[in-house]
Amino acid sequence: MNIFRLTADMTHLMSVIVLLLKIHTIKSCAGISLKTQELYAIVFTCRYLDIFTDFISFYNTIMKVIFLWTSFSIVWYMRYHKIVRRSYDKDQDTFRHVFLMLPCLVLALLINERFTFKEVMWTFSFYLEAVAILPQLVLLQRTRNIDNLTGQYIFLLGAYRALYILNWIYRYVTEPNYVHWIPWMSGLVQTLLYGDFFYYYFLSWKNNVKLQLPA
């Protein structure tokens, strides 16, 4: 474990907590894409299939349980909670999951470290996570008003993957034959997708104005 990875995991945890706080305290999910939340639940399910078979560390297991539990809770809140679901903008959140999941599944079947069920599912989870934010970014473009919590949530979600890239560089330099192209490429694509969001988020912070994404 290195400081980059620990900070990355804590940033990821913070992003989930910010979102849960928003949904749980003000009972609103305005501006949040249910599609992205569902894709994240799928990502964690496919990536943590080994949660009961391979024990790596208490930290690893506890974090997996937290990410699984929170991602499904958020989906449950947005779908079934009688107050929260009212603030879900389903007419604007129209990105089709299948357009993201199918190409990722095909790619995982073609490019993986080993052709076993768990390995392909693990690979699929990385490709899917790289593009899972797209429905959310599309929704942001459509719904002009981005409230602070939503902006912070997306910023933290993007920052965690950028920190993971630092972790991968650190491990590549310090650990012999530590090479994992699949997470590296997926993580790079994922971080780049946040590129313009980071740019506008930084501008809104620097000019102290409300976050606005160009149409």
Binding site: D54, I56, N60, W122
Partner: peptide, 10 residues
């Protein structure tokens, strides 16, 4: 290495 060694990250 077997599945989990190379998968120590979240």
């Amino acid at each position: 290495e077997c599945f989990h060694e190379s998968k120590d990250e979240l």
